[in-house]
């Protein structure tokens, strides 16, 4: 057992290091890190579901909803505060998940995956059909204010980085506490054996419903932050390949720790950007081959590099 001081202290040091690094790194690397953190939130949301044995091929639904909520918040409701946009993204994603959760928590395995995919593709179809929202071209978002301060240029990029890193850190910390709690462990119990969980007096569907809404809220936050950081949104955010990419990164990361999704997300973005630059014609092949190698040689994901005794979290 590690002491609570270490449990909080080490991540906090890491967080401070990340913020400091954000000020020092070149602009392009800061942007990639920022996107990796925002997408890491979505991967984190998948990890939460995976721990309960559910794999969503439609997390793009909430990623897209979060982004469009933020985008419409700026352009329609004239909300300019970044934190408010973030809250909007989280709220919209969470609310939709709460409704869909009643249906989706009845499904398991591939049927859960495919039904969530179907819902994300329906959102995609709606967005493509909405010419008022720019159809597939999407629309742009202006730079928001941060706690009332309007930064411009590089200062705005720094502020955005600090915001995203803080949100990611807070989310990871809270999720870590949650996963360590009794309600959190219920996920693994459900994955192992639902019927026994029911015999023990817990409601499987209730527990899954909570996890599903939490997961959607995280993905919504990731979407809102990506929208604000990129300054542009389009329906591709909800397309199935986007969702598939998140599942891939989740497997790449491993489900061993709440830090894994962010690490995996960063590694993935770096592999892809260098594959783009140095192998522009065959970058997909590089990504695909990397994927195979990781799966073959690192069954626990990248996070297994940080464990002395890799714990397999895959099902037998």
């Amino acid at each position: 057992m590690r002491g609570p001081a270490v449990a909080i202290g080490l991540p906090f040091l890491l967080f401070c290091g990340l913020i400091a690094a954000g000020f020092l790194m070149p602009g392009w690397l800061r942007f990639i890190t920022l996107i990796a953190l925002a997408k890491g939130l979505v991967v984190l949301s998948l990890m939460l579901l995976m721990r309960a044995g559910l794999v969503s091929f439609g997390q793009g639904l909430y990623y897209g909803l979060g982004a469009y909520a933020a985008g419409l918040g700026v352009n329609l409701l004239k909300v300019t505060e970044a934190l408010a946009l973030l809250a909007l993204g989280v709220a919209v994603a969470g609310a939709v998940a709460w409704v869909l959760g009643f249906l989706l928590t009845r499904y398991r395995e591939i049927f859960f995956a495919m039904l969530s995919l179907a819902f994300s593709m329906i959102l995609y179809g709606l967005l493509v059909k909405s010419s008022a929202l720019g159809s597939t071209d999407g629309f742009n978002l202006p730079t928001p204010t941060f706690l009332g301060f309007a930064f411009a240029g590089t200062a705005a990029r720094h502020a955005l980085f600090v915001l995203t890193a803080s949100v990611a850190f807070a989310a990871a910390l809270l999720l870590h506490r949650y996963l360590g709690s009794t309600r959190g462990y219920l996920g693994e119990a459900i994955r192992e054996n639902e019927i026994r969980v029911e015999y023990l007096g817990a409601s499987v569907r209730g527990a899954l419903h909570v996890k599903y809404v939490l997961s959607a809220a995280l993905a919504g936050a990731g979407g809102a932050l990506t929208a604000v950081a990129t300054g542009h949104i389009d329906p591709d955010l909800a397309y199935w390949t986007t969702s598939g990419e998140f599942v891939f990164v989740a497997i790449l990361s491993g489900t061993g720790s709440v830090a894994a999704p962010f690490l995996g997300s960063f590694v993935f973005e770096m592999i892809r950007t260098y594959a783009f630059a140095y192998s522009p014609n065959t970058w997909q092949m590089v990504v695909g081959a990397t994927m195979l190698l990781v799966i073959i040689f690192m069954p626990g994901g990248l996070w297994s590099l940080f464990r002395r005794r890799p714990r397999l979290v895959t099902r037998s």
Binding site: E109, Q284, A289, L292, I295, R315
Partner: peptide, 30 residues
Amino acid sequence: VLRLMYGRDEIVIVLVTYGVFLIIEDAIKV
């Protein structure tokens, strides 16, 4: 490829086939 994967989680194997798919796509392009 797949022979190395039997016994692994279903979702992992889905991703393995996705990796194979990406490789085939670029191989076709080449």
